[in-house]
């Protein structure tokens, strides 16, 4: 291969559902496992992933999630069967779906979000939160899990990302 290998990657996590956070975490961790430098920047609803009060309570949305058919085999249903949005709105259904997803992740040795953040931080990756989003949601640095290294402005994030691609999830 003549292509230059990737040396560094910066990932922006802007959404805060369980299914929306995992891709960022898996990609950042996977980068570090291959010796690639990695940063994750949590912004807007992605802040949910690093809120002390939410990190153990993240959920998968069962309303308006048109690809939920993929999870139907977990309920012994065909993979093509759509999950009815009205059913998803019933209290407890989202929690049940989240529990199911966490259980499947655990089977694959994918850690819960709080443990995953700790692991990623220990790999030497940078975990950051967005200042603007924090101001908007009235979140203080103390409200964030200890793994968050710094609160950054957009400009500071670009500085940290220098020299490598940025992935927005």
């Amino acid at each position: 291969m003549s292509e230059e290998p990737i040396k560094k990657v910066s990932i922006i996590c802007a959404k805060g559902g369980l299914d929306e956070i995992y891709p960022s975490l898996i990609m950042a961790n996977g980068a570090r496992m291959d010796g690639i430098e990695a940063n994750i920047f949590f912004t807007f609803f992605g802040l949910n992933a690093v809120l002390k009060k939410m990190v153990k309570n993240l959920t998968l949305s069962t309303v308006g999630n048109s690809a939920l058919n993929l999870a139907m085999p977990m309920l012994k249903m065909p993979i093509t069967m759509p999950f009815p949005t009205l059913l998803g709105a019933i209290p407890g259904v989202s929690n049940f779906a989240s529990w199911l997803m966490k259980r499947e992740m655990e089977k694959l040795d994918v850690p819960p979000v709080d443990e995953f953040l700790e692991m990623i931080s220990d790999t030497g990756a940078g975990i950051y939160a967005c200042k603007l989003a924090m101001d908007m949601f009235k979140v203080e640095k103390d409200d964030l899990v200890d793994e968050v290294e710094e609160v950054l402005t957009v400009g500071q994030f670009y500085e940290k990302a220098a020299g490598g691609p940025i992935i927005f999830t």
């Binding site: 496992m33 220990d122 790999t123």
Partner: peptide
């Protein structure tokens, strides 16, 4: 510990 692992076997 993961930190230790990355110190012992850097870059992967």
């Amino acid at each position: 510990p993961i930190k230790e692992l990355y110190n012992l076997f850097p870059q992967g």
